[in-house]
């Protein structure tokens, strides 16, 4: 698979404090990639940095290529074509992403005018088609409504419609359902996967919810403290996690069926970016940590087809997992 977006050695620092510490990531055409991790792990910053959306004082290093063209440091005019045109993004809090004093039609048509060569009535017709596509009933009339007249789930649908306005190749969905109720979350996820299939669009789903990512993505990257620690096809990651942190995350999730067991909580807390431990950032919380873990940070190394993990104790960790399974 040729990669559409290729990120190499991406680093971000705020005021000299590194928050993203070398991320390598490739996204194929039409692929659904999940990024999981806890708050502060760098999953959102990765894409904000890639699209040049971080504040000016952020120091960004590395390389982000879209179809081979470098995006980091690209002129604003070029980035404006990419943002919303080739790569669109939707966020957790849809209500604050819309302008409350403009109708939905104005806001949708604005996005269409920027990215599509449409005039007059064609713009309005396209806006209506987009609202239909995302499942807003009575689209023609609802175009004249203001954001507050819609429910939370509908506003997220409108955000998705706006993101689709530029016919993007990639949709970055940053915690798109976190603020929504369970049954509405199911609706939005269903909508996203239908649209992705129909339009052949690639999607990056950023979420703290392992279940959401597992169900909706082909491949998952687990992030911890500004690095990717494990990367695997989603069914394999959840059946057989290798990195101790990935194992911990899955063990910390209460099961919905079967016998109840005590949750395997990961001790301690995520390290503060300003006082990152030497070596592996997870070592202080890791039950398998050995002396070499504190010496240098492990790099992401392949362990099988399509799978890689950044852990020097990967073998031991795998054995430990099999031992648990054999009990």
């Amino acid at each position: 698979m040729t990669s559409l977006v290729s990120i190499q050695g991406l680093g971000v620092a705020f005021g000299g404090v590194p928050v993203l510490r070398g991320v390598d990531l490739a996204l194929g055409k039409g692929e659904a990639l999940g990024l999981v991790g806890e708050s502060g792990s760098g999953k959102s910053v990765t894409w904000l940095a890639a699209l040049g959306l971080l504040p000016r004082h952020a120091q960004v290093s590395g390389s982000v290529r879209l179809d081979g063209r470098e995006l980091l440091g690209a002129p604003a005019s070029e980035l404006d074509q990419v943002r919303g045109g080739r790569i669109a993004m939707i966020f957790q809090d849809p209500a604050s992403a819309l302008n409350p004093v403009l109708t939905i039609r104005k806001q949708l048509c604005e996005a269409l005018a920027l990215h599509r060569d449409l005039q007059g009535n064609a713009v309005k017709a396209e806006a209506r088609r987009l609202l239909d596509l995302v499942g807003i009933p009575d689209a023609g009339r609802r175009l004249e409504a203001y954001p507050h007249e819609f429910s939370g789930g509908q506003v997220q649908r409108i955000m998705i419609a706006m993101a689709l306005a530029g016919n993007p190749d990639v949709l970055i969905a940053d915690e798109p359902t976190t603020a929504l109720d369970a049954t509405i979350q199911a609706q939005i996820l269903e909508l996203l996967s239908t649209i992705r299939r129909e339009l052949g669009m690639a999607m990056v789903l950023i979420s703290h919810d392992l279940g959401v990512v597992a169900e909706n993505c082909d491949r998952v990257c687990v992030m911890y403290a500004g690095r990717i620690v494990e990367q695997a096809p989603s069914n394999q990651l959840f059946a057989d996690p290798v990195h101790p942190y990935a194992q911990g995350l899955i063990g910390a999730l209460p099961p919905l069926d079967g016998p109840r067991r005590r949750l395997t909580a990961i001790p301690g807390t995520v390290p503060d970016p300003a006082t990152m431990p030497d070596g592996c950032a997870f070592a202080p919380r890791c039950s398998l940590a050995a002396e070499p873990c504190g010496l240098s940070a492990p790099t992401l190394a392949p362990i099988a087809n399509d799978r890689s993990v950044a852990c020097i104790r990967a073998e031991a960790s795998r054995r430990a997992l099999l031992g648990i399974a054999a009990e």
């Binding site: 789930g153 509908q154 049954t183 199911a186 609706q187 269903e190 279940g211 597992a214 909706n216 069914n235």
Partner: peptide
């Protein structure tokens, strides 16, 4: 959502909260 299960067969309710 459950890890290890794809969304097939999920009951998706229509309508708003």
């Amino acid at each position: 959502p459950a890890p290890g299960r794809r969304s097939a067969g999920r009951i998706v309710l229509a309508g708003d909260p």
